[in-house]
């Protein structure tokens, strides 16, 4: 009875169900809502740690938003990021799909071992991956060494200081690391496909190509969409690899949005201005993600 009385009191006073969600709410407040609200607030101010305390900083309205959107370097960071996302995710998807199809279609000894080996790059810390690829593409690195041996002359191309090759090197490094992720999702998707339609198509004389293009691929569409969204979102935040390989150079041709925001918010203490950039990017990502995931959402009756 005493227990019942206490529960009633809690219910009367607070609503016990609210108390249950409170711990999560507290955590969310600390790690998500308050910082996010603070970022929005700061983006509307003129604050920098080198100009005084944040709460005393004047409100400048949308000035930071206008300023950052018209900043050439920010625009270039967006373009660079899109190029890296487009290049890397396309490459990862294509290679991951081909590998998954090979694993799905053929039975061979040591399949499990090979699958495990394919997953290793995904486990490497991105900073290490960046350093490794920086070494490979340096003037005295493996690429030039191989080219020198093949050509018989000393090849000393500075790959990381030529715009197109620096960008390609970053894309390759990212693709090397995350193709296994695509492989994993595609392979899991293929093994989960219902076998009846495929068998039926085969009985009816469909070629393997037709089976893949007309039956498997359409059925894989949800998982492909999810894989592309997840990888694109992750690639959009790419930082470690280009920062270590090129530090955004030559010039700012490989400077991604994350590097840009890190430099201006942390290194140059322009927190308010960079916050506006972060909010802009956040809104853009939300819109793109909602649009991209639309086909996955249940359709209204």
């Amino acid at each position: 009875m005493a227990n019942k009385g206490r529960t009633s009191w809690l219910r009367r006073k607070f609503g016990f169900n609210v108390l249950l969600v409170m711990p999560l709410q507290v955590i969310l407040n600390f790690v998500l809502i308050v910082p996010f609200a603070l970022a929005i607030y700061l983006s509307l101010t003129d604050w920098s740690p080198i100009t005084g305390p944040w709460y005393a900083s004047p409100i400048v309205g949308a000035q930071n938003y206008v300023s950052i959107l018209t900043t050439e370097r920010f625009q270039q960071a967006i373009v660079n990021t899109l190029l890296i996302v487009g290049g890397a995710v396309t490459l990862e998807f294509a290679v991951g799909l081909v590998l998954a199809l090979a694993f799905f279609s053929w039975d061979f000894r040591g399949k499990a071992v090979f699958a495990s080996i394919f997953l290793v790059p995904m486990m490497v810390i991105p900073a290490i991956s960046g350093f490794t690829f920086q070494t490979i593409f340096s003037t005295q690195g493996a690429i030039n060494d191989v080219l020198s041996r093949v050509s018989g002359t000393v090849v000393a191309v500075d790959w990381l200081h030529v715009p197109w090759s620096a960008l390609s090197a970053v894309i390759l490094a990212d693709a090397w690391q995350w193709t296994p992720f695509m492989f994993l999702l595609m392979y899991a998707g293929m093994t989960a496909l219902p076998s009846d339609p495929i068998r039926a198509a085969r009985v009816m004389g469909a070629s393997e190509r037709q089976i893949f293009l007309r039956i498997m691929l359409p059925m894989l569409r949800p998982i492909i969409t999810i894989a592309l969204i997840i990888r694109s979102l992750e690639a959009f935040k790419i930082f470690d690899v280009p920062f270590i390989m090129t530090q955004g150079g030559p010039g700012t041709t490989t400077e991604t949005i994350s590097i840009f925001l890190y430099k201006f918010a942390i290194q140059f203490a322009r927190v308010a201005w960079a916050s506006a950039g972060a909010i802009v990017i956040f809104i853009a990502i939300v819109i793109v993600t909602l649009w991209a995931s639309k086909p996955l959402l249940p359709k209204a009756e």
């Binding site: 030529v162 715009p163 955004g248 150079g249 030559p250 010039g251 041709t253």
Partner: peptide
């Protein structure tokens, strides 16, 4: 960064 862009023929 601007100098580097010039030296590497970016601009």
């Amino acid at each position: 960064t601007q100098m580097n862009a010039y030296f590497t023929d970016v601009q």
